[in-house]
């Protein structure tokens, strides 16, 4: 088991390092093309500010929705649903993570089965 864990952690760390170097794990704000940043900043507060204003105040759209700067977060949700340009980044990232996780699951399942059958 120790060996499996060691190999797994090593592989994960290596993948993480590579990913990190290429900024594979990102917030939308970090990869947003400059021209999109701030375009939706209707009521002009940044994502870092306290969110204590009245939702009925200025800055809401005609559907009654207030919009944050592109890539910033609102109540813990990445606020990209109204940013068409962000979809490929977000969807691509989710798809990539899904495939990596599925591959890791299969690898782990096979390796732990083999290890157990060898041990007995």
């Amino acid at each position: 088991m120790t060996k499996t864990w060691f190999v797994f952690i090593l592989a994960a760390a290596a993948a993480a390092s590579v990913s990190c170097a290429r900024k594979a794990d990102f917030d939308i704000a970090e990869i947003a093309p400059a021209e999109h940043l701030g375009e939706a900043d209707i009521h002009g507060h940044s994502g870092e500010e306290a969110h204590g204003h009245d939702h009925g105040a200025a800055g809401e759209t005609e559907t009654g929705m207030h919009i944050h700067p592109a890539g910033s977060r609102n109540h813990g949700t990445q606020w990209f649903f109204n940013q068409p340009w962000a979809a490929p980044f977000v969807w691509g990232k989710m798809l990539r993570d899904t495939l990596v996780l599925a591959a890791l699951s299969v690898t782990l399942a096979v390796s732990s089965s083999r290890r157990r059958s060898r041990r007995r």
Binding site: M1, T4, T63, G64, M65, F81, N82, A87, V90, W91, M94, L95, D97, T98, L99, L101, A102, L104, S105, V106, L108, A109, S111, S112
Partner: peptide
Amino acid sequence: GFDVSPVYILLAALYGLAYTAFMLSLARS
């Protein structure tokens, strides 16, 4: 009342299921 793309919901669900499978593989291991 804002529309969320069905593709997003599908991808997020797949991501969740893949992570669930990964956690179960870890648990099994």
